[in-house]
Design a protein around this nucleic acid. Structure first.
Lengths: 194, 194
DNA sequence: GTCAGTGATGTCAGTTGCTGACATCGACCA
DNA sequence: TGGTCGATGTCAGCAACTGACATCACTGAC
């Protein structure tokens, strides 16, 4: 028998989600999370950098997945098409974890501080996608803008997927959102053409 | 003579910027800021919600200015044109405060925590612009997407304005960035048309 | 001119997030 | 057998933030 119960990190995540959902994020202390996981506060901070981070473990994995998917986009595609390709590839990842995603999303929406962290993760995604686009030959400034736009699509598609009652997959929401973005940018062209 | 020196808030802001620049954000304590301003820590927290917020006072003002500018955009313009109109209007606001902006920008770039707060302010801008676009008759989802895109432009234009050595105004950077966005979204149209 | 009320500040004590230093002790390896 | 390693615990401490209450120049009503 090993000295400690296995999967301390997973237990901390589970405990945190339960407590944040039960009593709210701000009303929960790190000591309580650790206690429910059968650990000490100190151990919590060995696994997670701060009180927020428990909810965002796995976002590095998502980031890597997105980077890889974007790298595998066909070489000839425009930046936005490539991003669409990459985002659509995330479909199964989300669709398989829908219940957890909904719970986590509700918790994050309940706290300012957590939304702040989510926004930081978002900017990290932008920072990760930009060089991938540059390697595809896109100008740095354009790459950055495309990455920003892509992550906006990522995010809005995610939100409409969360709100979706009809069970459509994440990839469908990506397509819709991306089409909206194209329409949006195309609309003024008519006015600016002459 | 009044009981206290005037402009406690302004003194706290000045002290914070000095200390953050001199010793770094993390190495500075709120007590030190308060002391340099001739006040106590408790008073600091009556003026600012937390250690970060000193640097973001004024962002409500910016938000209001942007909302007003967008509301005044000609009724016939497309969402993106309207946003371009609103953003260009911020030009003088930034151009007049360039030295302060550069100092503040350098501080924020030096700290993760501060970038996190900046991202939160950014999402607050999106939340403020969305209903304005809706009132112009834009569909809610499209309004949100347009607001996100607009704030991306706002932000990227700001960054290239900060980096600009040639003294071009903020409004010029907005025009450039907006043109990039349009080109970006238009490019794939060619591929997707047939 | 007095006096009660107001509002910005100070004082103090307490909670919680987070960190460094060091101890513990099963597992694993030579 | 013994020594190292790695995950955890223990403990002390700092800094961010908060609530409760005190202070006292200023202001306005009378």
């Amino acid at each position: 028998m090993s000295r400690w119960e296995p999967d301390a990190l997973g237990r901390l995540q589970a405990a945190a989600i339960e407590l944040y959902a039960e009593h709210g994020y701000e009303q929960t202390t790190v000591a309580e999370i650790a206690a429910r996981a059968g650990l000490t506060e100190r151990t919590y901070f060995r696994h997670f950098a701060d009180k927020r981070e428990v909810l965002f473990h796995g976002s590095e994995m998502l980031q890597e997945a997105l980077v890889t998917a974007l790298e595998e986009a066909p070489a000839g595609e425009s930046p936005l098409d490539a991003i669409g390709y990459g985002l659509r590839r995330l479909g199964p990842f989300f669709d398989e974890r829908r219940p957890q995603s909904l719970r986590r999303h509700a918790i994050i929406r309940s706290s300012h501080e957590l939304q702040e962290r989510e926004m930081l993760k978002r900017s990290s995604l932008v920072a990760a996608l930009t060089p991938v686009l540059e390697r595809r030959g896109v100008e740095p400034d354009v790459a950055r803008l495309a990455a920003e736009s892509g992550i906006s699509v990522f995010h809005l598609a995610y939100e409409s997927w969360v709100a979706d009652q009809r069970g459509r997959g994440y990839a469908e929401h990506v397509d819709e959102t991306l089409a909206s973005l194209r329409a949006l940018a195309a609309a003024p062209a008519a006015a600016s053409l002459r």
